[in-house]
């Protein structure tokens, strides 16, 4: 039913989204932690920068990433210094771009969850001589778990749905940067509407199921929390 190149695109999309989700949880958590607890005047500007991909057209983000990651851009100069070459048209270039693009979808749920915990449980833990790492793993992580799960699901699905940025920096290389959304676009452009329909239907069903599980999970959780 699906062509080998469609299957390759699906597998690539899965790898990209998984990698991006793991990286985002690792870097998004400290950012969310800091934003939730800081009284710094930098909180406003940093929040705004994190939220930028929510409002910027993906093509704008993609175009500036293409320039920044190119041989003359500051990211490109850095990666060349490190002997990594330039990032556009590579798997890791896609990862870097997607991390920027999906950042707010991961930071904001975690930040909200940490803010909801408040100071009190942490202070109690501190009086019981829990160190800061201990407090994070034994108090924050269990209490903010729903926030982390929401963040992971949103980060993953948002990366799967990414299109404009990939189109700008991808270069349509099979197995490297030709993800499902680009593959659908290619089918439509080539007037292969049958194949486009198949892939698009899979994408809609997948996204619906993921969001459905997210919302049923959240509902269960609020009920549990209210009890």
């Amino acid at each position: 039913m699906l062509s080998p190149s469609d299957l390759e695109a699906i597998w690539l999309t899965f790898r990209v989204a998984t990698t991006v989700t793991v990286i985002l949880l690792l870097i998004g958590t400290p950012i969310a932690w800091w934003l939730a607890r800081t009284r710094s005047r930098l909180k406003g500007p940093i929040s705004a920068i994190v939220a930028l991909p929510l409002v910027l057209p993906p093509t704008v983000l993609g175009f500036y990433l293409l320039i920044a990651m190119g041989p003359n851009g500051f990211i490109g100069q850095l990666t060349q210094e490190l002997g990594l070459g330039t990032l556009p048209f590579t798997f890791w270039g896609l990862i870097v771009a997607s991390v920027f693009y999906s950042l707010p979808f991961v930071v904001q749920p975690i930040q909200n969850a940490i803010e909801a915990i408040g100071e009190r449980p942490l202070e109690v833990a501190a009086t019981l001589r829990a160190g800061s790492w201990d407090r994070f793993f034994t108090v924050v992580l269990p209490l903010a778990k729903p926030g982390f799960i929401t963040a992971a699901i949103l980060g993953f699905t948002h990366t799967v749905g990414e299109f404009g940025v990939v189109l700008m920096i991808g270069g349509n290389i099979p197995g490297q940067t030709r993800v499902v959304s680009v593959q659908i676009y290619d089918h439509v452009e080539a007037l292969e509407y049958d194949q486009a329909h198949k892939l698009a239907a899979i994408m809609i069903i997948f996204s619906f199921l993921v969001l459905l599980s997210l919302y049923s999970f959240q509902r269960k959780n609020t009920l549990w929390g209210a009890k």
Binding site: P88, L167, G171, I173, V182, Y185, D186, E189
Partner: peptide
Amino acid sequence: WVMGENISQ
């Protein structure tokens, strides 16, 4: 090879 979706890209 890197492929543009159209000649502008």
